[in-house]
């Protein structure tokens, strides 16, 4: 079954730049997909359309049964509750502890305290941060902060986890730790993961399916045990 269906999607920004052109793509439930491509190839734009930060200017994008293109501003939260998002810059709240940062995602959708507590601790355990619940973000390493962000993204048990260069600020060792966490989430929770990245090493090591973009066009979609190939080099 497909969690995401994209039909003839196009994104043209107001300044005239076309970031995505005629994109057709289906992504299966439970899969782990890398999105690669040179700088400006449209990776972030694609991710942004999936969580309806941007709207496609043409075509259809269905995520978990919701047509993102037609989703009204005041209904966007319905989509957001089905997915988790992780960024390169973590986006934690500096005045809240690790626990509070993760709990925040549940409180603002009105979850009960007991339920919140259980789920937050479980998520933090999964990312290996159970011993740091009372720390503040500035008392953590970059890798740890990113793991808090991942815990926050999965705490509501979303069907889909979107990651835009989650390892962009981390050294190779920490990056692989993050990848191990994501892989575990994909396998244990069955969460569909889509991750945009520049990192050749990671893509080669993980052996997941890979989408390559070039100037907003899909140039290849390798389904099985794929590796980082020349497409990106050609795209530059």
């Amino acid at each position: 079954m497909d969690l995401i269906r994209i039909k003839n999607a196009e994104k043209k920004y107001k300044n005239g730049v076309t970031a995505i052109r005629n994109l057709n793509l289906d992504i299966e439930k439970g899969s782990f997909t890398f999105v690669i491509g040179g700088s400006g190839s449209g990776k972030s734009t694609l991710i942004k359309m999936l969580y309806r930060e941007e709207r496609p200017t043409q075509g259809k994008i269905i995520v978990g049964g919701l047509n993102v293109a037609k989703l009204r501003n005041n209904k966007v939260y319905k989509l957001r509750r089905k997915l988790g998002i992780v960024f390169q810059d973590y986006r934690l709240l500096p005045k809240l502890t690790v626990y509070e940062n993760v709990a925040f995602a549940m409180e603002v959708i009105g979850a009960k305290k007991n339920e919140t507590r259980l789920k937050v601790l479980k998520a933090l355990e999964e990312v290996g941060l159970k011993n740091k619940v009372h720390n503040y973000p500035d008392q953590l390493s970059g890798g740890e902060q990113q793991r808090v962000a991942i815990a926050r993204a999965i705490v509501n048990n979303p069907k889909l986890l979107l990651c835009d260069e989650p390892t962009g600020n981390l050294d190779p060792e920490k990056s692989m730790e993050i990848m191990a966490v994501l892989d575990k989430i994909n396998k244990v929770r069955g969460t569909t993961i889509i991750m945009a990245t520049h990192d050749k090493e990671i893509v080669n090591k993980m052996k997941k399916q890979v989408i390559t973009l070039k100037d907003g066009r899909l140039v290849s979609f390798k389904k099985k045990g794929t590796y980082y190939d020349e497409d990106v080099e050609n795209a530059k």
Partner: peptide
């Protein structure tokens, strides 16, 4: 601003 943008990301409704 930061808090609001995160609220949006994690699916807080407009009302909230």
């Amino acid at each position: 601003k930061r808090e609001i943008s995160i609220m949006r990301l994690v699916g807080a409704s407009n009302f909230t």
